[in-house]
Design a protein around this nucleic acid. Structure first.
Lengths: 136, 136
DNA sequence: TATGCACCCTGTAGCAACTACAGGGTCAAG
DNA sequence: CTTGACCCTGTAGTTGCTACAGGGTGCATA
C-alpha cells in the first residue's frame, strides 16, 4: 500500500454512488475537498472512502444530510465539549432504537407473509398494522 | 365510536405529518381519496390513519415512495398471484435485515460514545467505522 | 504520431418528495 | 355577524440528488 489513491470513478464504484453525487457532497461540504492530480483529477484516500461509505449508509437509513453532518461531527470534532457530543449521540441513539423497533416489526410481518405463501392467496395481511402507532 | 371521522388537520397531528404532505400523497395516489363533507372538507377514517402511519414510518426508514407503494400492495391486493407477492416480500425482507444490521452497528457506536462521555473529550471515536463496508 | 475511447472537469437543468405561500371559502364561538 | 382557526385549489420554492452539455485528460493501439 504505497499510493492507494482512488479516482472519483473508483470511489463511486466502491460505494455504489453516482460520480455526480460525490461531487455534490463535496460542494455542500459533506466530503472534504480532495487532492488534485496534475491533470486536475480528484484523488481520494482510504479516509474519503470510509467517510463516503458512512454517509451513504446513514442516508439509506433515513437520516437527513444535516443529521449525517451531526453524526460525522461526533468523530470529526473530538475536541468539542462533551455535553454537545453527548446530546447529539443521545438524541440519535433514541431515533436509531425507534427505527430498529419499526424495522423488526416490518421484518416479522414480511416473514409471516413468506411463510403463508406457497398456497394461493394471502390469508390475512397485517403489514399496515406492523408500522401503525399501536405497534410502538 | 360512532362517527370517528378526522379532518385533515386531525390526521396531520396524529401522524406528525404536514397537511400539505397528506394532500400530496393523495395527489400521487398513495392515499385513497377521502369522503368530503358538505363544505368540501376531506373526512378521514381510522383506515386512512393506519395507512398514513405506515407510509410515514416506511419513508422514515429510508424506503422510496415506489417501495412504499409495493409494500402497501402486499396488503391491498391479496387476490394477486402468490409469486408476485412473495417476490416483493422476499426482496424487501433482505433490505430490512440489512438496515437492521446497519442500525445495530450504529447503536453500538453511539452507546459507546455515551459510555465514554462524562470525562473531557472522546477517547477514540469509531462512528465512521460503524457503518463502513467492513462492518457488514 | 495520432486517434480513438474511457474517463475526468465545470457548469446547468431536471426530477423526486416534499414544503410554503397566495388567494379565497367554511364554520363554530362570542 | 364578524373574527379566528381551519379548510380548499393552485403554484412556486427547497432538498437531495441525477442527467446532460460542452469540453479536457490519458492511455492503448494502429
Amino acid at each position: 500500500m504505497v499510493h492507494d489513491s482512488l479516482s472519483i470513478g473508483d470511489l463511486a464504484k466502491a460505494t455504489a454512488t453516482k460520480v455526480e453525487t460525490i461531487r455534490y457532497y463535496e460542494r455542500i461540504g459533506l466530503l472534504p475537498t480532495p487532492e488534485r492530480t496534475a491533470g486536475n483529477y480528484r484523488s481520494y484516500s482510504a479516509a474519503h472512502l470510509g467517510r463516503l461509505s458512512f454517509v451513504r449508509r446513514a442516508r439509506d437509513l433515513g437520516f437527513s444530510i444535516d443529521q449525517v453532518r451531526d453524526l460525522l461531527g461526533l468523530s470529526d470534532q473530538r475536541d468539542r465539549s462533551c455535553e454537545a457530543v453527548d446530546a447529539i449521540a443521545r438524541e440519535n441513539l433514541a431515533e436509531v432504537e425507534r427505527k430498529i423497533r419499526d424495522l423488526q416489526a416490518l421484518r416479522r410481518e414480511l416473514g409471516s407473509i413468506l411463510s403463508q405463501c406457497g398456497c394461493g392467496t394471502i390469508a390475512e395481511c397485517r403489514i399496515i398494522e406492523a408500522l401503525s402507532p399501536t405497534a410502538m
